[in-house]
Write a protein that binds this DNA or RNA. Structure first.
Lengths: 86, 86
DNA sequence: TAGATATTTAGACAAATATCTAAATACTAT
DNA sequence: ATAGTATTTAGATATTTGTCTAAATATCTA
């Protein structure tokens, strides 16, 4: 669980995807257009982010829209604060 | 920089090391004794944590003591909060 | 100085990862 | 139905990573 989370965050491309999703929900294709990386690779990154519950996906017609899930961030915050305390 | 940080955190053993250092400073050998992993491997993990500035090391006689550096955690906190905000 | 203990470095290797192209699947619209 | 667009799945490959053992380095002590 924490494993999936840290694994997902351990990649510059995936972190950049999260940063972009902060602004607005985006389709897989829109996200892919932000990078010089093939669509299948981006699709793979998105799956890793989804498994970590960092993003949610929703099919709208022929598109798949991705959105940021910030609630999982709270767990990460908690983890860090625990390390800092005492 | 953020790369080194996330890379360092992306390993259960290293996260466990950090948790143990929260309690008290420990020598490399003491840390190694906590795990069923060879001392060279632990030494390698410690180097990765050190490069990420998550731990500091100090030689005391023939021992090398490691301590947690929590200031770097603040950067991580900031990163997460930025993702959450708006 | 020799021997013992603590730690790191070097080199090897299997497993995991990021990437690609090609093909499959799903939906839209003519 | 057919063609076009969007996305994922499959399979391949080069790189990175975590681990090991053996050897090197550093320090302590008798």
């Amino acid at each position: 669980m924490m494993n999936e989370l840290f694994k997902a965050l351990n990649d510059e491309t995936r972190r950049e995807i999260l940063n972009n999703l902060k602004e607005r929900d985006m389709s897989a294709g829109d996200i892919a257009d932000l990078f010089n990386i093939s669509k299948p690779s981006i699709s793979h990154h998105l799956e890793i982010l989804r498994k970590a519950d960092l993003v949610r996906s929703e099919k709208r017609g022929q598109f798949v829209f991705y959105s940021l899930n910030t609630t999982i961030m709270d767990e990460l915050l908690q983890w860090i604060l625990t390390l800092k305390k005492t």
